[in-house]
């Protein structure tokens, strides 16, 4: 298997991040873990944006990933983190394969609203489920990795941070290849001209379906990692504001590169954390102005700063 420059750079950054984790304070590790987990969900949103669809309900798969990890430990005796994450992905794939049959018939705002509707249906079910803690959710059982049980606290935080980095690296490389592969490029072609794709003998609907299922699996992994990091899941994971947050981060980063969602998620988390810290009553306004500034001055997202710099180097 050959790796290109982007993939090697991603691997080096990942190694640097893992090492950085050993010398960083706990609060920063936690912030980064949550940011990078959410970035995986955002990768799912971006994958769909590239094909011309905006999911307002990606929280559905974030929540499925999180709840499967939580329920696996609580009810089914699955304490291995890797197995629980894999199960979360599997459940998300099954759900996406069913919902995708309906959703991929729709485009534009209809797709957006339907995806939101399914997410809110899950939210409603979870809120009414006493066994799952209703609105409070429930705590995730202590977990192991291949039989090794990290100490709770810093040890556990460090482990989940490393797992998130590694998962992020694998997913980033896969998505990087996916966007250059047949399905990735042709999904962009669907966004640009569905009629032509159809008259090339391809089914835009099935292409979008494959893309939707792939995006769901990535998002579920993000949800599962969040559950492991926070040790808690609740129905808010499927709430519309959570899905809105993912779109916010996607717009912040832009669609230009696989690294953009990771950068945007970190920027978002830092801005939000410090806004809440210093201006607790108006933090939403700060986030609003941040997005406004990005849309006005960097319509292609934060990544356009990097790509501009690169094109400047070439000239």
């Amino acid at each position: 298997m050959r790796f290109d420059r982007t993939e090697i750079s991603l691997a080096l950054i990942a190694i640097a991040c893992v090492l950085f984790g050993f010398v960083s304070p706990g609060w920063l590790i936690f912030l980064l873990t949550i940011a990078l987990s959410k970035a995986l969900v955002v990768q799912g949103v971006v994958m769909q944006m590239r094909s011309g669809l905006v999911s307002f309900g990606q929280g559905l798969f974030y929540c499925i990933g999180g709840y499967t990890v939580g329920m696996g430990g609580q009810f089914f005796g699955i304490h291995d983190a890797i197995a629980a994450l894999a199960l979360g992905i599997a459940v998300a794939i099954v759900v996406a394969m069913i919902l995708g049959l309906l959703l991929t018939r729709y485009r534009d705002i209809f797709f957006a609203m339907l995806s939101l509707a399914f997410s809110m249906i899950l939210f409603g079910i979870l809120v009414k489920s006493q066994e799952l803690g209703s609105t409070d959710g429930f705590n995730v059982h202590n977990w192991t990795v291949f039989g090794w049980a990290p100490e709770t606290g810093a040890d556990s935080q460090q482990t989940v941070f490393t797992m998130t980095i590694l998962a992020g690296l694998v997913i980033a490389i896969m998505i990087h290849r996916y966007t250059k592969a047949g399905i990735g490029v042709i999904c962009e072609a669907v966004r640009e001209n569905e009629v032509r794709v159809e008259y090339l003998g391809l089914s835009p609907r099935w292409l979008l379906y494959g893309n939707y299922v792939a995006a769901a699996s990535v998002s579920a992994l993000g949800g599962g990692l969040t559950a492991l990091a926070t040790g808690h899941v609740d129905p808010e994971m499927a709430y519309w504001t959570t899905s809105g947050e993912f779109i916010f981060i996607a717009l912040l980063g832009g669609l230009g590169h696989v690294a953009a969602p990771f950068i945007a998620a970190i920027v978002f988390s830092v801005v939000r954390t410090y806004s809440i810290e210093f201006v607790p009553n108006t933090w939403q306004m700060i986030l609003g102005f941040t997005l406004l500034g990005v849309i006005v001055f960097l319509p292609k997202g934060l990544w356009s700063l990097v790509s501009r710099e690169k094109s400047g180097e070439r000239t």
Binding site: A181, G182, I183, V185, L200, S203
Partner: peptide
């Protein structure tokens, strides 16, 4: 050229590859 490459890939198979490069 990318328009043509997409058409070439479509002509080869109705199920585009998930990981091998289009170009």
């Amino acid at each position: 050229i990318d328009n043509l490459i997409v058409a070439l890939a479509a002509a080869e198979s109705p199920r585009p590859s998930f990981l091998s490069p289009l170009r």
